[in-house]
Design a protein around this nucleic acid. Structure first.
Lengths: 175, 175
DNA sequence: CACAGTTAGTTGATTTTGCACCCACCTGCG
DNA sequence: CGCAGGTGGGTGCAAAATCAACTAACTGTG
């Protein structure tokens, strides 16, 4: 359901193939959502037979035909509905916190290793987000659309930074 | 899979019925995981026939029999394995960030409303976490187990606090 | 030339999750 | 007395998500 709305959002920016959608999920959108190829194509098909999108097959000379998906008026409507519906909070879910919660089963070294590994992974993700942000900073803030898109990345950056601080605090005070 | 491990973790603390597990997911564990009743009972059955847990039916005078689930040695092993395996990062997923990302489809008022609503919800969740923490603070930090459990709650608190700051920043600078 | 990688899309099977029910019996409140 | 709410356990079904293949042709590199 959320996926369907996100795809509509992307189609709203510009018509796209499933392949291109997948690339967005892997890059511009990866800091707040991800999706499997198969899931994307199936949702796309579903959107079409709900009348929220239409397909136009665009032949190409050297590559496979593009199945360009366009959002319809009905699609725009449900997207707007979703945006103004204040959707319910999705429950927090973090397997790593589960590991920490029960980490006392390990010896001290094991716990430290768990935290340090996570620290590295988090730092890596943060660096990725930071380098993504470099590509937009200046000219964003200008129009509202770019501002909001950049803002979601900032959110991800803040979250990762907060996690790093937390990891350091835990490592420091671990009895 | 994660759910199965979390249940093993809880059973490791003390033998429990599915009903009691559900209560933990709704209270002590709710800041990093949640689970449906049905899912818990099914996973429990699965753990039993994998040999990671055993059931002991404890009759009660006035209430239904308790199906007390005990973790086995094999169960302890897979739990420890999971804890020291540094499980892959679960992808970030936040429908609300999706709404923000595409919020430019709304008018300014709609966007502000979206953010303000979220602000309230987040404040509410944060307050809940803060009051949960009051019940543990002092005597935690003592042993490692309590420290780590409290730490996961602190993590959730930091995340919510960071989100509040972010929301305020976005509201302030929204063009 | 061989091989890895990219573009584009599809299928089948399985797992995970969520929702809505259902049972039985108990306690406490008005 | 009736009825809400707690204790304890469960089923059936449908979505959502993941995993793993498979098709088919092109492009660039060593």
């Amino acid at each position: 359901m959320v996926l369907a709305r996100l795809i509509l959002g992307l189609l709203c920016l510009s018509p796209m193939t499933g392949y291109e959608l997948k690339k967005h999920f892997d890059s511009s959108i990866n800091h707040f959502w991800n999706a499997d190829k198969a899931q994307i194509y199936r949702t796309l098909a579903q959107l079409v037979d709900q009348g929220y999108a239409t397909v136009r097959t665009v032949p190409q000379s050297n590559y496979p035909d593009r199945q360009e998906h366009h959002i319809t008026e009905a699609g725009r409507e449900v997207l707007n509905q979703w945006l103004s519906s204040g959707a319910a909070r999705s429950p927090e879910r973090d397997p790593f916190m589960g590991q920490v919660f029960f980490a006392a089963e390990l010896e001290r070294d094991g716990i430290e290793q768990l935290l340090i590994e996570r620290r590295q992974a988090t730092q890596y993700v943060l660096d990725d987000y930071l380098s993504q942000r470099e590509g937009i900073d200046m000219r964003a803030a200008a129009d509202r659309r770019s501002f909001l898109m950049a803002a979601t990345l900032d959110h991800a950056i803040r979250q990762q930074a907060a996690e790093l601080e937390w990891l350091d605090a835990v490592l420091e005070h671990l009895p």
